[in-house]
Amino acid sequence: MSTSIDMPRGARQAQTYLPETDAREEILDFALLLREIEVLRTQNSSRAALVDPQGNARPIPDEIFRILDQVTNALAAGEGITVVPQGVSMTTQQAADFLGISRPTLVRLLEAGDIAYDKPGRHRRVRLGDLIAYQESFRAERRAAMRELQRAGLDARAQVRDPADLKRLSELDAE
């Protein structure tokens, strides 16, 4: 059974939060408190709770606690945070920024079919979920390639029989 809640206006859009300079000490104190709570949570296998103005406590789900901790740490470090619902559509420039690549490189990936996109009018739109899926598959491919290179390097070392060749390989590794 799915439950629907009325979301505030604009809640399905990206929202950026920047730390206010006059609140920095308060944010740092809160970040330290969250770390202390995390230590207690792991030691006691308990959950943090949110207390309303009437004093009623409600447990905070672990996932929300982790998000709160991450957001607080970023704000305490003076960084801004952007909250983006996974189903949101982005422009190609926003998508490129998210992946940390240039817009032309992103467009090549879109046209090659590596990342799904929509083109409702003249401009392409990319869903955040599709970017995350691409990012995860790219990382998995990169890890597999690194493992293969490591295996090939081990195989090459195993085939070296001349001690002089082995010494040269060791010197190359040291560089």
Rank of each mutant, 00 (worst) to 15 (best):
S2G: 04
S4T: 08
I5N: 12
M7S: 13
Q13F: 11
L18N: 05
L18A: 10
L18T: 07
L18K: 12
P19K: 04
T21A: 10
A23E: 13
R24G: 03
R24P: 02
R24Q: 15
R24H: 15
R24M: 14
E25K: 09
I27N: 05
I27K: 08
F30T: 08
L33Q: 15
L33Y: 14
E36L: 00
S45N: 12
S46K: 11
A48N: 04
L50F: 12
D52A: 08
D52Y: 07
P53D: 08
Q54P: 01
G55N: 06
R58A: 09
P61D: 15
I64D: 15
I64S: 08
I64Q: 09
I64E: 15
F65E: 12
V71C: 04
T72D: 07
N73S: 10
N73G: 07
A77E: 06
G78Y: 13
G80V: 07
Q86M: 10
V88L: 11
S89Q: 14
M90T: 02
M90D: 04
T91Q: 09
Q93R: 08
A96Y: 00
A96C: 05
D97E: 12
F98G: 06
L99T: 03
G100T: 06
I101T: 01
R103D: 03
R103E: 09
P104Q: 03
L109G: 04
A112L: 07
A112T: 06
D114H: 09
A116Q: 10
Y117K: 02
K119H: 03
P120H: 11
P120Y: 08
R124Y: 13
V126W: 03
R127I: 03
G129V: 02
I132H: 02
I132N: 01
A133Y: 00
A133R: 10
E136D: 12
F138I: 00
F138R: 05
R142N: 01
R142T: 02
M146H: 06
M146E: 15
R147D: 14
Q150L: 06
R151I: 01
L154H: 14
L154M: 12
A158M: 09
V160L: 15
V160A: 15
P163I: 02
A164F: 04
L169G: 11
L172T: 14
D173I: 05
A174K: 13
